[in-house]
Amino acid sequence: MKEGPDIAQVATLIGDPARANMLTALMSGKALTVSELAQEAGVTIQTASSHLSKLDAGGLLRPRKQGRHKYFSLASDEVAHVLEGLMGLAVGAGHLRKRTGPKDAELRRARVCYNHLAGDMGTQMFDSLIAQGHLVLEGADLALTQSGLAFVSDFEIDAEALQRARAPLCRECLDWSERRSHLAGSLGRAFLTRFEDLTWAKRDQKTRIVSFSDPGAVAFHRLFPVAHP
């Protein structure tokens, strides 16, 4: 037997269609009950409980009990990062479970990727931050510059507090629909929260769509302009 990480075990956990549907539903960032996840997976509650036990034992979920209900969420940003990457691989290889529908264009425009903004608007924000010199790629790492720190502070995000936390501040996440990077990490989460606080945007918990109001979209494009050739 070869030594090293057992990716086959994790792949087996994710690879079951019912478990994959549950994990995808949790990409909304919302904790869900066994019955809600059973509905997402199209299985009985008993079967869902068995699947969730396996995902929990595999370190992919974080269960929490509140009152009579037990809630499940993804174990970490790392799990969400892997799932988004797998979605990108699936789309690139043409592995789609259904034809595109009316919601597809909205999902591709702006959606939640666990706790940060993804889709066309997510990649626009990432590209604009890079173009303005607020973010820089240092090898495989993404870093906030001094101008970026001032930019974030002006937007009333406490970047210094985020830097003191243990969670990564800035991370690249490969967007499954755009096949380009969007911003993850605690800063990505803070930006999405700020958009909601300003009522620029609102999440749809059932579909993961992030809907921007007309004034919110105008303000967003002003803050994160696209560089035209």
Score class of each variant (00 low, 15 high):
Glu78Ser: 02
Glu78His: 05
Pro17Phe: 01
Arg166Tyr: 13
Leu183Asn: 07
Arg171Ile: 10
Ala165Arg: 09
Lys54Cys: 12
Thr193Leu: 05
Asp214Phe: 00
Ser76Thr: 14
Glu3Trp: 14
Val210Glu: 14
Phe195Pro: 02
Thr33Glu: 14
Asp104Cys: 00
Arg108Thr: 05
Leu89Tyr: 08
His69Cys: 05
Arg99Tyr: 14
Gln163Leu: 08
Leu149Val: 10
Asp120Thr: 00
Ile209Ser: 02
Gly139Phe: 06
Gly139Thr: 13
Gln146Thr: 10
Leu52Pro: 07
Cys173Pro: 00
Ala93Leu: 12
Ser147Asn: 09
Pro225Asn: 02
Val34Gly: 05
Phe224Ser: 04
Gln9Phe: 13
Phe195Arg: 03
Ser50Phe: 08
Leu32Cys: 04
Ala131Pro: 05
Ala93Trp: 11
Ser128Phe: 10
Asp6Phe: 04
Arg64Glu: 15
Val152Cys: 07
Arg108Trp: 06
His221Val: 04
Val112His: 13
Leu183Pro: 12
Asp158Leu: 01
Trp200Lys: 00
Thr44Cys: 02
Gln146Cys: 04
Val91Met: 01
Asp104Ala: 03
Phe151Pro: 06
Asp104Ile: 00
Phe220Val: 10
Arg171Phe: 04
Ala31Leu: 07
Leu83His: 04
Gly139Asn: 13
Gln9Ile: 10
Gly94Tyr: 13
Arg19Ser: 12
Val112Asn: 07
Val136Gly: 02
Cys173Thr: 09
Glu178His: 00
Leu86Val: 06
Phe195Asp: 14
Thr47Ala: 08
Leu129Ser: 01
Leu89Val: 11
Arg222Gly: 01
Cys173Ile: 12
Glu160Arg: 09
Glu3Ala: 07
Phe191Pro: 09
Arg203Gln: 15
Gly92Thr: 09
Met1Ser: 13
Arg179Ser: 12
Phe155Asp: 11
Ala165Lys: 11
Glu36Gly: 03
Ala165Tyr: 10
Ile7Asp: 14
Thr44Glu: 15
Thr100Ala: 10
Lys2Gln: 15
Leu86Thr: 11
Phe191Leu: 08
Asp6Gly: 02
Gln132Asp: 13
Leu198Glu: 11
Arg179Trp: 14
Glu138His: 09
Gly58Thr: 11
Lys202Met: 12
Gly29Phe: 09
Lys54Asp: 14
Phe224Trp: 12
Gly94Cys: 01
Lys103Phe: 07
Leu144Gln: 01
Leu192Ala: 05
Gly188Trp: 06
Phe155Pro: 06
His134Ser: 01
Asn115Lys: 07
Leu142Phe: 07
Phe212Arg: 06
Phe72Arg: 00
Ala165Thr: 12
Val210Tyr: 09
Pro225Tyr: 02
His134Cys: 05
Glu84Met: 04
Leu107Phe: 07
Cys173Trp: 05
Phe212Met: 03
Gln124Asp: 11
His95Leu: 07
Gly59His: 06
Arg64Gly: 13
Pro168Gln: 02
Asp141Asn: 04
Leu26Phe: 10
Thr12Glu: 15
Leu96Asn: 13
Ser50Lys: 05
Pro225Ile: 02
Ala18Glu: 11
His69Arg: 05
Asp197Trp: 00
Ala219Asp: 15
His69Thr: 06
His51Val: 10
Asp16Glu: 14
Leu135Ser: 04
Asp56Ile: 03
Ala25Thr: 10
Arg222Asn: 10
His69Trp: 12
Gln124Met: 00
Ala41Ile: 03
Arg166Ile: 08
Ala48Phe: 01
Pro17Asp: 07
Leu89Cys: 08
Leu60Ala: 05
Ile14Cys: 08
Ala167Asp: 15
Thr12Gln: 15
